[in-house]
């Protein structure tokens, strides 16, 4: 009698998985857009200093990384060393070569906007090291720098 009586089979239809690939691809696309490739692994001990007034670098602009800290592998000694790309360096002159190599891979317009990010351990590294790094950077005219930090949780209001 009832209008709504099902007159077909009484079996439950299975949930269609046809849209599952679409969903997964959407998630995939999201990750591709918001994430960036991992930098080379850190070979020096690093606790980044924390700061409040930080600015996020635009990942579309070129960034070169200079790491400074005490090597994790004690074979490299236990004083502050530089890590450029994957190599541990003792000689500060290597910075010039590192920057120039990086520049060769980019166009001049990209180079104008390039930033050098200095990542250094907050306790192990002293200002002497920072001065030496900055002097080398001035030699090769890489003047836009960034002191890499981690975000400090904001206290109180603004």
């Amino acid at each position: 009698m009832s209008k709504f009586r099902q007159n077909k089979s009484k079996e439950m239809p299975g949930v269609s998985t046809a849209s599952l690939p679409d969903i997964v691809f959407t998630v995939l696309a999201f990750f591709v857009v918001v994430s960036s490739m991992k930098q080379s692994d850190l070979k020096v001990r690093m606790t980044k200093p924390s700061a409040k007034e930080i600015i996020q670098l635009d990942k579309n602009e070129a960034i070169d990384y200079i790491n400074a800290g005490i090597p994790k592998n004690t074979a490299f000694g236990n004083t502050v060393r530089l890590q450029l790309d994957d190599d541990i360096q003792t000689n500060y002159l290597e910075i010039r070569r590192f920057i120039e190599l990086a520049r060769e891979e980019r166009t001049p317009t990209e180079n104008d906007k390039a930033t050098v990010s200095i990542k250094a351990d907050r306790d192990d590294v002293d200002m002497d090291v920072i001065d030496k790094i900055e002097n080398e950077l001035r030699e090769v005219e890489a003047l836009r720098i960034n002191y890499s930090t981690q975000k400090e949780s904001k206290r109180g209001g603004s």
Binding site: L28, F31, V32, V34, S35, S36, M37, K38, Q39, A51, E53, I54, I55, Q56, L57, K59, I63, T115, S117, E134, L137, R138, E139, E141, A142, L143, R144, I145, N146, Y147, S148, T149, K151
Partner: peptide, 20 residues
């Protein structure tokens, strides 16, 4: 993609060094 990339963005205090 999740393994090979990182969500962490590079941030810090910007500065401009004086000319040589």
């Amino acid at each position: 993609i999740i393994i090979a990339t990182t969500l962490e963005k590079e941030s810090g205090l910007p500065a401009v060094l004086p000319q040589k």
